[in-house]
Design a protein around this nucleic acid. Structure first.
Lengths: 185, 185
DNA sequence: GTGGCATCTTGTCAATGGCAAGATAAGATC
DNA sequence: GATCTTATCTTGCCATTGACAAGATGCCAC
């Protein structure tokens, strides 16, 4: 924790995570360099190792943070459409976290904290679907949740990859709403 | 081209691409090493540079090959649901290609051959949607194409990332069909 | 104030991507 | 058939990186 007052830096762990987000925003998780993070934080090249062990450790922490942020975003959504839009919004606004979260080869997928955070996200998503389909006896909640997750995740991923045609526009929020309605209406 | 008879190897370009697929299948595009590919092909560490310039050049070629393969897969699909399932099948069966294709930071997105191949894929997808909605005057083809692409892409991506719960099963073909029907019916 | 501990630094190593310069063989031209 | 040209591949090199080991530094409990 600690406020900011630092001696051996203060809160290097947090500073490194912030620097990681910054670095990934400028490039990609692939291009991330621990030594670059250390330089950004003004510490020696081996300092990160103490807090995260290795690169995978740092990305594990980043992914866990991301799943927690995503859960929060989903939990505040009123209905399923809003949750879908919130999902896309999250991906765009937290690109760095999002790109790491769904690339498990970059981190330790068996980390306890990460699993807990991912569980929180999943529960938030599922509850959104269940709430919507509770008045429809014929609904298959599992399938609907998977479909909703897929379309939101797919749109977000394609958007981030720059794979969508220009005609989709420049506002991911509006574009996502339009597309997601195709499934949710 | 050339059959296989080689002197300076024969067809190193193709061999390196094949080795790249193999290596990515074993790990990920991130972990790909040009020197490892060279070792797999039995050539010196600098040989790949001549054919692809650098790592991005090799991945550009791989992505272009992938978009062409995807276009072929989509073109043989009879209806939109089949195309969606074919999309997921492609992603699973050609994971290496697929993972590179949608990570433009890994290659040169302005490459002419790549743009052509990607255009082929896009046209195949769009024509599938247009065919389906031609009898529905109220249809918004652009939106429908985007929704179809998103849900197929999202499902494929989540599947490959191992993010889906176990209960979805082990056969991506069946699971995809079930989920995609939620949109296409 | 002393010992213990977390934190950070310095030094080192193997591996990688990329460049430059050179070797080798295939094909073209005469 | 000899020579020139070009594509292909090799050797050697350098800066950067991730990881490890050993040591320094400052905080805290007792």
């Amino acid at each position: 924790m600690t406020g900011t007052r630092g001696y051996h830096h203060g809160d290097l762990r947090r500073a490194l995570l912030a620097a990681a987000v910054e670095a990934i925003d400028e490039a990609s998780p692939t291009a991330l360099s621990l030594r670059d993070l250390a330089r950004r934080a003004g510490v020696s090249h081996a300092a990160p190792a103490h807090h995260f062990g290795d690169k995978a450790g740092l990305l594990t922490a980043l992914a866990a943070e991301g799943f927690n942020l995503l859960a929060e975003a989903l939990e505040t959504a009123d209905d399923l459409l809003a949750a879908g839009v919130a999902y896309v919004d999250f991906a765009v606004r937290h690109r760095a976290h999002f790109e790491v979260m769904f690339r498990p080869e970059l981190y330790r997928a068996d980390d306890a904290e990460l699993i807990a955070a991912r569980g929180r996200s999943g529960a938030a998503l599922r509850s959104g679907v269940a709430r919507l389909s509770s008045d429809d006896a014929s609904a298959d909640t599992d399938r609907d949740a998977l479909a909703a997750w897929s379309i939101a995740h797919g749109f977000a991923t394609l958007w981030l990859a720059g794979a969508l045609p220009d005609r989709v526009g420049t506002d991911p929020h509006d574009a996502a709403r339009t597309v997601l309605r195709r499934l949710f209406d």
